[in-house]
């Protein structure tokens, strides 16, 4: 049966790669985000590559009122429904320290916005008894670091939410996968210094699609981040607090 991916944050670099790959393998895509004109270009690209459904719909993580139209459109799509969340924003720590009012938006973009959406769509997926939810978090959510801990905290919140959602939806036949990318060469990181193991978005997207097909629970991508973060997580707090990583 055909599968359609609802892609939240479809203008993200990684999301674009993911939408392409999904289209290549014959899945449909419902692209949700803020920049409609840009998503239309991605939709044409997906259609040319073979997506049986390639549509665009407005989504703003900070405006929960925008969610119900997406749910309505999704309910009308036959077959397996899956959701992939790529929304996220990362103002610099300095910017947030200087203006703490930015924190709420960061938490909404990375955590509560997607969480509200997923909570609203969960019953629809559960009723169908299949499908996958992919949530893109970050290795930054594994430990609070001096340079990036508000973004990290929002991602950590999202990780924990996804873990609970997995626990809940797994029993209804819906698989939930948490993705923790390392540093990726995207619009978000362009021009930033010190990007260890920088990966291309195509690689991350391919890992995500493979992980989703293989029903992985937690995916570190590229894989090198799994041992790296395992070590970083194990460092005792009394030492970690003095480090600059």
């Amino acid at each position: 049966m055909s599968q359609t991916w609802i892609i939240l944050g479809a203008t993200s670099t990684i999301a674009r790669s993911f939408a392409r790959l999904a289209s290549d393998s014959g899945d449909g895509v419902l692209l949700a985000g803020r920049d409609i004109a840009d998503m239309q270009a991605t939709a044409s690209d997906c259609a040319a590559r073979g997506a049986p459904l390639a549509e665009v719909i407005a989504f703003d993580a900070r405006d929960a009122a925008s969610f119900s139209a997406i749910l309505k459109r999704a309910s009308d799509i036959d077959g397996t429904l899956s959701v992939a969340v790529f929304v996220g924003s990362m103002p610099t720590q300095d910017a947030m320290d200087a203006d703490p009012s930015l924190i709420a938006g960061t938490v909404t973009d990375n955590f509560t916005g997607p969480a509200i959406f997923l909570t609203m769509i969960a019953p629809i997926l559960e009723a169908r008894g299949n499908g996958t939810v992919v949530g893109v978090g970050s290795v930054a959510g594994d430990r609070g670091r001096i340079g990036n801990y508000i973004y990290g905290a929002a991602k950590a919140g999202f990780h924990t939410y996804l873990s609970g959602l997995r626990n809940r939806m797994g029993r209804k036949g819906v698989h939930v996968m948490t993705v923790k990318p390392g540093t990726v060469d995207t619009a978000m990181t362009w021009g930033m210094e010190k990007l260890p193991f920088l990966a291309q978005p195509e690689k991350i997207a391919a890992d995500i699609l493979r992980g989703a097909n293989g029903q992985k629970n937690i995916l570190y991508t590229p894989l090198i981040w799994w041992p790296v973060m395992t070590v970083i997580r194990l460092i005792p707090e009394r030492i970690f607090k003095k480090l600059q990583v």
Binding site: T11, T13, R16, D35, A37, D38, A41, A187, W190
Partner: peptide, 8 residues
């Protein structure tokens, strides 16, 4: 610069 969309 490496724009990803027309507006950029």
């Amino acid at each position: 610069a490496r724009p990803e969309r027309a507006s950029a």
